[in-house]
């Protein structure tokens, strides 16, 4: 598959899908969505990109190795959990920026969000690892 149209379309679509994915991720706390769904959408975007540009290129734009991404994701989740230890609470206790609680910022900046981002990264990384490995095995 080496079509210019596909390549051009992919660039735009990719951006749109990624934005949508992040939107799904962020809104998860209040509406349907969340890290896992965002991750699946993101993986779909990258799979699309891979069809257009091949796996070499895909690996390049991913910055990190897909396995690294998934590890980073678990790392984020653990870090989100551990943050509460600094305030004397137990592991995984949710902490919010005071500004969010007072309603000044719309984004729920919190350890819970970081946790969800961890989910997002871990799942994205894992799914991409599997799909890319399978694809490269031809």
């Amino acid at each position: 598959m080496n079509s210019t149209i596909l390549k051009a379309a992919t660039r735009i679509l990719m951006a749109l899908i990624l934005i949508f994915a992040i939107y799904m991720l962020l809104r998860g706390h209040d509406d349907p969505g969340g890290g896992f769904i965002g991750a699946l959408i993101t993986s779909a975007a990258f799979v699309l990109y891979k069809f257009a540009y091949g796996s070499e290129e895909t690996r390049k734009i991913m910055v990190l190795d897909s396995r690294g991404i998934s590890m980073l994701g678990i790392g984020c989740a653990i870090a989100a959990g551990l943050m509460s230890l600094f305030t004397g609470k137990t592991f995984l206790t949710g902490l919010w920026l005071p500004a969010y609680v007072e309603g000044r910022i719309p984004l729920p900046v919190s350890t819970v969000l970081l946790f969800d981002i961890g989910v997002y990264l871990a799942v994205t990384g894992a799914v991409l690892t599997i799909v890319l490995a399978l694809e490269e095995d031809r």
Partner: peptide
């Protein structure tokens, strides 16, 4: 959920 993402990540690896 932490366990769940660990499962998925291990599956990837």
């Amino acid at each position: 959920t932490l366990g769940e993402i660990v499962v998925v990540a291990i599956a990837g690896l």
